[in-house]
Design a protein around this nucleic acid. Structure first.
Lengths: 116, 116
DNA sequence: TCTTTAAATCAAAATAAATTGATTTAATCC
DNA sequence: GGATTAAATCAATTTATTTTGATTTAAAGA
C-alpha cells in the first residue's frame, strides 16, 4: 500500500502565475481597456472602424489588439480583407469580478450571468 | 450666433480607467502575484520573514510591496521596527472573479463570500 | 550614547514595453 | 494583370519598469 505524500511543502512556490501575468499585463493599459470597452459596446468591430473609434494609428491599434488576443481576452474573425474583433466574455468573466465584468458588458444583455 | 458642437463624438472615451490600469499593473507580475499568494496563506507577514519566503533581496521586495500597496491590494501595519503586510481582501474581491479570489484565499476561511 | 536591526529610498544600470513610420502580405475589384 | 484597400509586421526610437547595491531613516536594546 502506498502512503500518500503530504501535499504541504512548498506547494505554494510551484503555483504557476504565468497565465495570469499575461492576462493582467494585457489589462494593465488604459488604451487596451478602452478597446475592450468599445468592443463591449459595439459587439463585433472591424479594425478599420476601430481605428476611428479609439482614435489610434492602425499599426498601434494592431499592436494592442495582438496583446489582447494573445491574452485570450478578445477573439478575431477574418472575413475577406476585414478582421472583426470581439470581446471574449467567457474569459473576461472567468477573470474579473461581476462588478468589473459589468464595465465590459452592455446593460441590455443580462444573459451571461455576470451582472447582478 | 455660435452653432453648438454636437456632444456625440467620443463620449465613451471619457470613461476613466486609470485606477484599473494601476491595479492591473500591480497584478501584472508573477513575483507580486506570489507575494499576494503568500500573504493569503500566511495572513499577516513582516518584511523580514517575507524576504525568505519569496526569496528576494530586501530592497527588491520593498519595491514590489510598494506597488501593491499603492494599488490598494495589500495593507501595511508598522509595529516598532517591523512592518506587517496583509492582503486587502475587500479590494481583491471587488476586482477579481470568485474563481480567482480563491487563489488569494485560504480554503479554511470561507467567511468573506468569495469562494463558491 | 552607541550599536544593531528593519525597512525604505536612491541613483545607476539593465530589461522590457510602447510608439512611429515604412514596408509587407493578402484579399478585392476593375 | 494592375490598382486599391485592410491589416500585420518590422526596425528604430522613445519611454517605462525592474534590478542592483549602497545609503538613509528610524526604532530598540545594551
Amino acid at each position: 500500500m502506498i502512503k500518500e505524500i503530504p501535499f504541504v511543502l512548498n506547494v505554494e512556490s510551484q503555483v504557476d502565475f504565468s497565465k495570469f501575468e499575461l492576462q493582467f499585463k494585457a489589462l494593465a493599459d488604459q488604451k487596451r481597456l478602452q478597446i475592450m470597452y468599445e468592443l463591449t459596446q459595439k459587439g463585433s468591430v472591424c479594425v478599420c472602424d476601430l481605428v476611428d473609434i479609439v482614435n489610434m494609428p492602425q499599426s498601434k491599434l494592431s499592436y494592442h489588439l495582438k496583446i489582447l488576443l494573445d491574452a485570450n481576452l478578445i477573439t478575431k474573425e477574418t472575413k475577406g480583407t476585414w478582421s472583426y474583433y470581439e470581446l471574449n466574455h467567457e474569459e473576461v468573466n472567468r477573470l474579473l469580478s461581476p462588478e468589473l465584468c459589468c464595465i465590459f458588458r452592455k446593460s441590455e444583455n443580462q444573459s451571461s450571468g455576470c451582472c447582478p
